[in-house]
């Protein structure tokens, strides 16, 4: 008996209990966030589902909750996200290529290179409202250097034309999209860098050994191998852009708009702003409309995230 007891490790029960307790603690933590999400979704669906029909997507906002729709806000979001994606992707990917593929050897340049890298990582953590204010001065007013909003310093076409363009950009779709670009640019750069870094060096060396120039190497070997990673990061970044309210609020303000943008300089409203507006109204009925709006926004976001997962699964080929 004495011998048997000696074989038992000291305080076994306690250790096993601790082990179990920790496991259950982790389970609770994990389920807490899921439960919160489920409760949120459940209450949203309960509140918002009866407004959910085709008219809600088509009709403009209204003072009557029954008639209120998300049409112009949805198109506004589509416009600014298109501008945002079309500008952020080339800029972000090119910056990432520069940072990853053109590493300098000179000590001073290397220091500058590192400084740039550090800055970009820091920018990813700047609150989005700050970008809104930058966008207001840099894009909407252009520091007041080129005319003002009433008398633009440069304009092309009239406000009736689809190709109308002016400097400064004013409180239009273009300024909104560019501001969102500022918000997501650091994210696009950092995630593209990660993707490029994951491309094995042997691929690059192989290309160079075959006599390819650096441009040929990047264009034919590195970039194609990194595309799935870049796409995943970018899609997630754009889905963040769709949900951003603060920077757009600074650019566009809360505005009652019944039309969809007709050109890049046209005024707009976006889904988060429309939801914010509804949620702030005194009538209970509008809070339910806001819930419907949130459901639509969530659906769009989930679609984007699902696409990102799909792209990663589908296109990520083993490289070795």
């Amino acid at each position: 008996m004495i011998e048997h007891a000696a074989l038992q490790p000291k305080g076994k029960v306690q250790r096993v209990l601790k082990n179990q307790a920790f496991k259950w603690f982790c389970v609770c933590c994990a389920s807490a966030s899921v439960i919160v999400l489920c409760v949120l979704l459940g209450s949203l669906i309960k509140q918002g589902v009866h407004h959910f029909d085709l008219d809600f997507f088509k009709s403009p906002p209204s003072r009557k909750p029954v008639k209120a729709g998300l049409g112009p806000a949805m198109w506004g979001s589509v416009w600014i996200c298109a501008v945002c994606a079309l500008t952020a992707l080339p800029l972000g990917v090119a910056t990432a290529i520069f940072l990853e593929e053109y590493k300098p050897k000179n000590r001073v340049v290397k220091w500058l290179h590192n400084l740039l890298q550090l800055n970009i990582s820091n920018l990813a953590g700047v609150p989005s409202i700050v970008y809104g204010i930058i966008g207001l001065t840099a894009f909407v007013q252009m520091f007041g250097f080129i005319g003002n909003l009433n008398e633009p310093g440069f304009s092309f076409g009239t406000r009736e034309d689809w190709y109308y363009f002016q400097l400064p950009f004013g409180r239009g779709v273009f300024a909104g999209g560019l501001t969102l670009m500022l918000v997501i640019l650091p994210i696009v750069i950092v995630s593209s860098q990660e993707a490029l870094r994951a491309v094995p060096n042997s691929l690059r060396e192989g290309a160079l050994a075959c006599g390819a120039t650096k441009w040929q190497m990047i264009w034919t070997m590195t970039l194609p191998a990194a595309i799935p990673g870049i796409m995943t990061g970018s899609i997630l970044a754009i889905s963040r852009a769709i949900g951003e309210a603060a920077p757009i609020l600074v650019i566009a303000g809360i505005v009652f708009i019944r039309f969809t943008p007709a050109h890049l300089m046209d005024e707009f409203t976006a889904m988060p702003l429309q939801i914010y507006d509804w949620a702030g109204r005194p009538q209970e009925e509008f809070h339910r409309v806001a819930a419907t709006g949130i459901l639509v926004l969530l659906a769009v976001l989930l679609t984007f995230n699902a696409t990102a997962v799909f792209v990663r699964q589908k296109f990520q080929k083993p490289l070795q």
Partner: peptide
Amino acid sequence: EEFAEVCPRVRVTVGI
């Protein structure tokens, strides 16, 4: 909102 019924092509924006 009501004006949009009468003159649908006039684009009115109202801010706060």
